[in-house]
């Protein structure tokens, strides 16, 4: 039995068979895929799998074809494709009950919720990330962390950091390192570093692919289109990664977040974190800094930038960010 590529865009009958197989396996035929393969037996589609960037998803084998180790064939073909695309890591999202099959294929679990398990293979991996955190770790009694996208870094972010420092002796600021925002990771990291340079006891780090990333929390980047139920699942997973993989390494006692009056997805995220952390970590929601009765948010800054409204921008961001934005804008 050969693994063949399924051209979902142009082959309507293959797409129909694909959807039917996924439905039978209890999966939603989500069309956000780059590449799909399948195995046919006498004209019948009996196994399939897809990739989206470096995420392996929608893997299903027909009930009638179980015990033929077709999963290894499908996964092998997908990994080959990822290697050809020069991805050095691969992630799998699956139900906890099927996670063992992927573990048998060399994948390692990063974190698990009641409904999803996230696994990875390749290098750098979660251990590399944890080693990086360990190197940056400072001795602390009451360490805290903030995860921020800082797209761009505003007065609101700085206020959040300052508020958190009132409770913490060491504060880790983890900058989301996924390039799906207006400002790329390097630029955002630079703005954060400049923005907190004068504050003692603040350590700026990146989240690599492990927090609020394409792998853990894709809905975060599709705030307008995200299904809130799906977002809640992903948020729970992200919270578990933080709780199980990051907090123990940095000896964290607190996590801080800004209150979220405007974005439903971020509100869901805060809510899921509160549930996951209960009894383990202190989650503190800090009210947003307001300027003229309006909460200061990166969204507002981006809108102002779009309008070329530099006056508003200047009011909402620290001088360091403003200089940075000006220079970037000057270049383009």
């Amino acid at each position: 039995m050969e693994v063949t590529r399924l051209w979902l865009d142009i082959n309507a009958s293959a797409k129909k068979a694909w959807q039917a197989l996924l439905t039978q396996a209890g999966l939603v035929a989500d069309e956000q895929v780059d590449y799909t393969v399948g195995i046919y037996d006498q004209g019948q589609l009996i196994a399939t799998g897809s990739t989206y960037q470096n995420i392996i998803k929608l893997v299903a084998v027909a009930d009638t074809a179980k015990h033929n180790n077709l999963l290894a064939k499908i996964t092998g073909a997908l990994l080959e494709r990822l290697t050809a695309d020069r991805f050095e890591q691969a992630y799998v999202y699956t139900k906890p009950c099927t996670a063992t099959y992927f573990k048998a294929l060399g994948f390692k679990a990063i974190a698990e919720t009641t409904h999803i398990c996230l696994l990875e293979r390749g290098y750098p991996d979660i251990e590399t990330f944890q080693a990086k955190l360990k190197r940056a770790k400072r001795p602390s009694q009451q360490a805290g962390a903030i995860v921020m996208n800082a797209n761009p870094f505003t007065n609101g972010h700085r206020y959040l950091v300052q508020q958190a420092l009132q409770t913490c002796d060491v504060l880790y600021v983890l900058v989301v390192s996924e390039d799906r925002s207006l400002f790329d990771t390097a630029a955002r990291l630079k703005m954060v570093q400049a923005g907190v340079a004068d504050l003692k006891n603040v350590v700026v780090l990146t989240t690599d692919h492990y927090l609020v990333s394409n792998a853990t929390f894709p809905s975060y980047f599709l705030k307008d289109q995200a299904d809130l139920k799906v977002a809640a699942e992903q948020a729970q997973l992200d919270a578990q990664v933080f709780l199980q993989r990051v907090a123990p390494v940095l000896d964290l006692k607190h996590r801080f977040v800004g209150s979220e009056p405007n974005s439903a997805v971020t509100a869901v995220y805060n809510d899921q974190m509160a549930q996951a952390f209960a009894g383990h970590l202190q989650l503190t929601v800090i009210d947003r800094l307001t300027e003229n009765q309006q909460p200061v948010s990166a969204t507002t800054v981006r809108q102002a930038l779009k309008r070329d409204d530099w006056e508003t921008v200047q009011q909402l961001v620290p001088t360091s960010t403003f200089k940075n934005l000006r220079s970037v804008n000057h270049d383009s």
Partner: peptide
């Protein structure tokens, strides 16, 4: 930084070096 050879088919071994 990393290299792989082999598959996870029966009678094979997948070796990954890091």
């Amino acid at each position: 930084q990393t290299a792989t050879a082999g598959t996870t088919e029966s009678s094979d071994i997948m070796i990954t070096l890091k």
